[in-house]
Structures are given as C-alpha cells and as structure tokens.
C-alpha cells in the first residue's frame, strides 16, 4: 500500500525552489514529509514483524525454518544491500560536489546492488517454493513471504526511483541545488536497509534455526497486552 510518499516525488517542483524555500523549522517540506512517511513505514514493518514473532514456532506442518533457511546465502545478499547504502552515500556526496559522472555512476551502482539483492530474493523464493514452502503451506510461509515480500517491494520501488534519478542525472539536472532529490531517495534507501537488518536478525540469525512447534519458544498473542 501507501507508497504514495513517492508522490511527493524527487524530481518534482521547479528545481531551484528548494534551496530558497523558507520554512518555520528550517527543514525542507519534502524532507520533513519523507521523515513522517518513514515513521509511518516503521509501524507498517513493525506490525508485519510482530505478526512473524507472534506466530514464530506456531506452524502446524513443515517445512520449518531450520529445514530451508540458508543463512550464508542471505548473509551475502545482506552484505550486498549494505554495500548499496555505501554507494547511496557516495551518490549524494557526488551530487553535492557536482561531479556529474560520479552522480550517474553511484546512482546506477546503488540500483544495481539493490537489483542483486532482489535477484537473491527471487532465487530464495523459488528455492523455497521448490522445497515445498509456499505462502499457504503454514504460518511460517505466510509470515515469511509477507514480511520479506513487502520488504522486497520496497527495495524494488527504491530501484525504480534510483533509475528514474539516473535518467534525471543524465540530463544534467542533478547538482548541489537539487541535492535534496538525491537525499530523499537516500533516506528511503537507508531506511529500507535498516529494516532489512532487523528482518535478517530476527528471521535468519535468530528464527532461522527454529524447528517444529514443540521445540521453539512460542509467544502467546495475549502477552501483547504487556507491550
């Protein structure tokens, strides 16, 4: 749902306006919008993660996480995604330095590394499917595919955004005066990365070795009452 923050989109408005725009807090409108959107998205992923944690170990039939989760493979894709955050930082730095060649290179590099991550995810989803885990197999499948799927959709949208920015950069329209366009994409991209770190920790490093229902710690939904 709610990816309409992109509607307050990077390349909007006359390019020169942002630099001079004066606001009550001194924070640009679009940047503030992005932060408010990200706070909303926190609750979105928070609810998905809560569902995963509540249903952790509640699957009635296999395959269970220990049967199919491959931590080393996903460690590689996690590393790639983290590297893309570095590339994003370089893209913004290049924009501030007005180095047109580097802006294009690093934007494309960020999108490329993001695409590799998505490639790993497609591979993983297909592998799980082949090994008998589908979204309707058990609660693990439902919560896993929903959570990582929506994260993947976020990354995909980020890639579309970065590629769009790349085309804007090719026209020479990105530079210090329009650095906010890149910074907005960067905020989004870093946020999606951070969410993945949480997901990787919970679903792979901690939950990835869960066996069937009896052997794992289950969380009764009623304890949510204490939160």
């Amino acid at each position: 749902m709610a990816h309409h923050a992109e509607t307050g989109h990077p390349t909007g408005h006359a390019p020169a306006v942002h630099a001079e725009e004066q606001t009550t807090t001194g924070i640009n409108h679009r940047k503030l919008l992005m932060w408010v959107f990200l706070s909303s998205d926190c609750l979105f992923f928070g609810s998905l993660i809560a569902t995963y944690m509540v249903y952790r170990g509640q699957s009635l039939v296999g395959p269970y996480p220990v049967d199919i989760i491959d931590v080393p493979i996903t460690t590689i894709s996690t590393f790639v995604l983290l590297c893309s955050s570095f590339a994003m930082v370089r893209a913004l730095a290049a924009t501030n330095e007005d180095n047109q060649g580097k802006i294009q290179f690093w934007l494309l590099m960020t999108a490329f590394l993001g695409a590799i991550f998505i490639g790993f995810q497609v591979y993983e989803f297909n592998l799980f499917r082949a090994e008998g885990l589908r979204i309707d197999t058990n609660l693990f499948g439902a919560t896993f595919f929903t959570l990582t799927g929506f994260h993947g959709a976020h990354v995909t949208l980020g890639i579309v955004w970065l590629v769009a920015l790349f085309f804007v950069a090719r026209k020479g329209r990105l530079g210090p005066r329009t650095a906010l366009d890149v910074e907005m994409a960067g905020l989004y991209w870093h946020f999606v990365d951070i969410v993945w770190i949480v997901i990787f920790t919970l679903l792979y490093l901690i939950g990835g070795f869960d066996t069937g229902p009896s052997a794992t710690i289950s969380i009764d939904p009623s304890v949510l009452g204490f939160l």
């Binding site: 909303s40 609750l43 979105f44 609810s47 979204i135 929903t146």
Partner: peptide, 22 residues
C-alpha cells in the same frame, strides 16, 4: 495508526485470496 490496520487488512486479504492462515 493506519499502517497497523493496513497490515491487518493485507493479512485478511491474503487469508481470503491466497490461502494463508493468519
């Protein structure tokens, strides 16, 4: 607040259309 119901509605839709058991 709205993202929370969004997730609930997504799960409901998945239950009804994709055979999940949320």
């Amino acid at each position: 607040a709205f993202p929370v119901i969004t997730v609930g509605l997504i799960e409901l839709t998945f239950d009804r259309n994709f055979g999940t058991s949320f």
